[in-house]
Structure formats: C-alpha cells, structure tokens
C-alpha cells in the first residue's frame, strides 16, 4: 500500500494558482466538518442521482438542497450495472442514462454550479466510468470542474492505489472510503488511514435503500471509530426518516440520505412546488442535526 499523507491540514497554501485551487478544494470537505463541529452541528449529506430526471434539474436540486440546509452533496454517476445499489437508485440510474447523462456532462454541470455555490460536492461513481474516461483525465477534469471528493463503492482500498496516487498528483479529488459492519479491525485501520475528508460508515450489511433496524450496533461501531480516528464519520445506507437522521446525528458527524430522497424526486419532480418541497425536506432533516437548544418547543426531541 502506498504512503498516505496523515492529514491535509498541514498543506501549505501554494503559490501558483493551480495549487491554491487544489489545496482549497482538498480542504473544502474538511473545512465544512470543522465549522460544523464548532457550531455543534452534524452534517446533512443528501445523495441525488445526477441527471435524474435531467441535469438541469440536478443543478436546481443542488441549490435547493443547499438552501434547505444541506452541508455537503453527493452526486451519483449513473452506471448500467450498479451492484451496490437497491432498486430505487438502480431505477434512478436508468432514468439518468435515458436522459443522456454522462460523466463528462456531469462534470460540465458541476463546473457551471461552481459559479453559484461552493458547497462541497462528492461524486459517487462505479470504477468503470472512471476507467472509461481514463483515471488521469478524470482526476484533472474533476479538479477543474470543482469536485471535492469521490466515493467508489466497488473500489476497496486494495485496488485504489492508482486512483489515489493519480488524484494526489492532480491535487484532488480526495478519496472517501467505506467501512461496513463486516469490516475487520485490520480493514478498519486501512480505511481510517486512507480515507480523506471523512469516513463513510455503511450502517447495514446490504445495499442502498435497505431497511435499517439496528441503530445501537451502528452507534457502537461509529463511536469505536471516533475513538481511533479524528476523521469525521458519516453514516449512510437505509436512513429514510428525520427520526432516524436525528438518532444517527446523536453520534455520527454526518448523515447521508440517499434512497429516500431519490424516491421523493422520482415521485414528485413534476409537481409545481417540487423545488420548494425539496428545500423544505432538507430543512426538516437539517433541523434534527442542529444542537439541541434548551428553548422549549413542541417539535423538540424529547431526550438526548
């Protein structure tokens, strides 16, 4: 395994414009988490499938989610054979492919979004899409477009050296790795060492959108991770309600909401109030991730 820079904080501000840009970008995810930590908030990380139903809508959705309180946003890259995804995200990928979405067009959309927002954007993509573009071209293009991080569900640390080193050389995007309930102690160490930005903890043994039942187990594992690593831990897979988000937010540094949001988009994107509704949803999810204030109110959670 390649050497891993232990942390990015020490990254000096470069002198030439390119490296200024890259060090800013590597830090955008981290900066967001440290700001939130200071405020006692937890990160809301919605996942949407880029191009579902269209890339124009993806742009509008990113802005609406940010308005509603999203802190980072994951953009799915549609793939024909998404082995880690449940039916909701599989169908979203089919719709996105049907609307002509490609990785190239997603990067163009992100570049466009960068005139409007600086929210950290993370691509979630299967490895073959990156190979088809070429790993080096992908890293260069992603940095130029303003992508901050990348999650590749079919790329465990063992196979990630090429992408990791190429991304390092290109000045981004940072690689976020997943840990699962099945991961052994040895694997946890490897992921903790290699994951940048945050660690993605998969809350259940299964695929995206499955039913999450045992949160106490998740709590234990996340807390164990937090004892051994200072990197933020975000939890995803199966978090479908504000109530679950609130519970997970009590221990994790971030909450990822994917299938539940993607399903809502599939069912309601034609509605005239769609974008304000999405903003409202984000608001509702974010509200349970704020510090619990002593002010009494009817919507306040009963217990910490």
């Amino acid at each position: 395994m390649a050497h891993v820079s232990p942390c990015l904080k020490g990254h000096a501000r470069g002198r030439d414009p390119a490296s200024v840009k890259s060090s800013d970008m590597s830090n955008r995810i981290q900066a967001t988490f440290s700001q939130l930590q200071k405020k006692g908030e937890k990160a809301l990380i919605p996942y949407i499938m880029a191009g579902d139903p269209t890339l124009a809508m993806t742009e509008a959705l990113v802005l609406a989610l940010e308005q509603g309180g999203a802190d980072l946003i994951e953009l799915g890259v549609p793939f024909s054979d998404p082995i880690a995804d449940g039916p909701v995200i599989q169908q979203a990928a089919e719709r996105a492919l049907h609307s002509g979405t490609t990785l190239k067009k997603i990067l163009a959309t992100v570049a466009n979004l960068r005139n409007k927002t600086s929210i950290p954007l993370i691509l979630m993509t299967y490895y073959n899409s990156l190979m088809a573009m070429g790993i080096k071209d992908f890293c260069t293009n992603a940095v130029q477009a303003g992508i901050d991080g990348i999650i590749v569900p079919d790329l465990p640390p063992e196979e990630s050296t090429l992408l990791y080193q190429t991304a390092q050389a290109a000045g981004g995007p940072v690689s976020i790795f997943l840990l699962a309930p099945t991961s052994t102690a040895e694997r946890r160490r490897a992921v903790i060492q290699r994951s940048q930005g945050f660690i993605y903890y998969v809350s259940l043994t299964g695929i995206t959108g499955a039913k999450l039942s045992d949160l106490s187990q998740v709590r234990q594992s996340v807390q164990q991770l937090q004892r051994t690593s200072r990197k933020p831990v975000a939890v995803g897979f199966g978090i479908a309600s504000a109530e679950q988000a609130r519970e997970v937010g009590q221990f994790a540094d971030g909450v990822i909401i994917g299938s539940a949001l993607v399903r809502h988009i599939a069912e309601h994107h034609a509605a005239s109030t769609f974008l304000t509704d999405i903003q409202g949803l984000a608001q509702q999810w974010k509200s349970v991730l704020l510090p619990v204030t002593p002010t009494p109110s009817s919507t306040q959670p009963q217990k910490t």
Binding site: I83, A84, Y127, P153, D154, L155, P156, E158, E159, F177, L178, L179, A180, P181, T182, S183, T184, R187, V191, V202, T205, G206
Partner: peptide, 18 residues
C-alpha cells in the same frame, strides 16, 4: 492479489471483502 497480469483483482464493495 488475484491478478492475471493487469487483469482480475477484487473490485467489490467493502461489505464483501471479509
């Protein structure tokens, strides 16, 4: 590492690795 030259390998979700 399960490699046949450049081919093969283990491109699977973390959940399956153990």
């Amino acid at each position: 590492h399960g490699r046949f030259g450049q081919f093969g390998g283990m491109y699977v979700p973390e959940i399956l690795m153990p």
